[in-house]
Design a protein around this nucleic acid. Sequence first.
DNA 1: TTTTGGTATTAGTCGAGACTAATCATAGCG
DNA 2: CGCTATGATTAGTCTCGACTAATACCAAAA
Lengths: 233, 233
Amino acid sequence: MGNRALEDYLKAIYKLAHEGHGAAVGTGAVARALGVSTPSATNMLKRLAAAGLIEHRARRGVTLTPTGEKAALEVVRHHRLLELYLTEALGYSWDTVHAEADRLEHAVSEELEARLDEALGYPTVDPHGDPIPAADGTVRAVRDRPLPSLAPGQAGIVGRVSDADPEKLRYLADLGLVPGAAVTLLDSLPFEGPLRVRVGDAEGSEHVLGRELATDIFVRSAGVDRDPAKGNR
Amino acid sequence: MGNRALEDYLKAIYKLAHEGHGAAVGTGAVARALGVSTPSATNMLKRLAAAGLIEHRARRGVTLTPTGEKAALEVVRHHRLLELYLTEALGYSWDTVHAEADRLEHAVSEELEARLDEALGYPTVDPHGDPIPAADGTVRAVRDRPLPSLAPGQAGIVGRVSDADPEKLRYLADLGLVPGAAVTLLDSLPFEGPLRVRVGDAEGSEHVLGRELATDIFVRSAGVDRDPAKGNR
DNA sequence: TTTTGGTATTAGTCGAGACTAATCATAGCG
DNA sequence: CGCTATGATTAGTCTCGACTAATACCAAAA
């Protein structure tokens, strides 16, 4: 624990790697994620590579080494434990915790981590529905898909909402679009444009959602949560 | 909130200024307090002066300007609120909180500060008996004196124990020398050497204390004067 | 007055991490 | 098959804080 810049890079790489399913992460993407110029990123990525935390294949992008992944998970764990703790114990709202946790995560010791974990009853999910990595580095597999990937008429349960912008989060919360909520995709165009959704089972609560927002909402199937037939790409 | 190095310097200067009652603080003292070379301190003090946070009178030492004092108090407030919160809410022991708070204090936002303050019921004293500056910068005046300044035979109440070393703190706690404890100075030599003390009212609990340790213990007179509110443990 | 010693400051360097400007590599298109 | 857009890298610079070595200041002792 300790090196701010380093940890931020690892976290960013981890997140990018997981939202662009598994592929290597480009320098530019990292730079954008951190609000930094691409040369700065290149520079830093070299150092991370030298430290054995990432694999940097020339002009191809980077991937975390096992060591790097472990370090990244540690940071993510701190972040999500903090988010949950701040909302549970100190009354933060889900739209503001992110920023606070971002600052605190780098100062969390092993001991504090353990105490937070215990105080929360060893939770597995943070306030946005993201999984909290376990102390041993295990992460519960997320098997949810972006809201727009539902078929028109299909219903789902909101699993997580992965945006950091407080304003958007507040807006979504107003609509009732928080983890656990039932949502039905009424209709949408194939690849772009807004979608119409119904939140909950009530008749009245139909809303139009911009695509941008919708793709940050992840749902799991509404029905009986079953079967390992994981064929849905 | 934000600049680690800067805040550490301000905090150090503040503390030094208050333990050597009111006088200006020397460069060397600052350097020692921060574990840094004197040139580094000189260098940094210049920057603090340029930023208007301290007055740097040539070869005479530094004092905090009003702005600097305000900033320093903010850091101290964060530190002490954290120490108290960590012990109250997360079960930390008084000997280990210091290090944890040292790391976290720089990442505490106004909002978190306020929430901690509220969760703790607007406390005025941290686990070591040090006063917690109020949000407006007010600090309750400490009116206690070092244990060795008692006259032989005189009794007092431990007000605060101002050491950061976990081992020493654990030792003192073992002896029962924690804020709120009654202590009687049995006898001692004028300026150096160990002292004999009795802790509490019992007959059996007499101990010999090294001078070093004893000067970190501050007592107030045993008699009447009292803030009625404080339920110190 | 000169010496000596403690303390502060200057001078010069270094590493981390950021930046801009310029160059290079590659994929896709014409 | 070459050209161009996109993205990555190199080169060079800056600031922040730290460091060592050398120097300057002041105070008491000789």
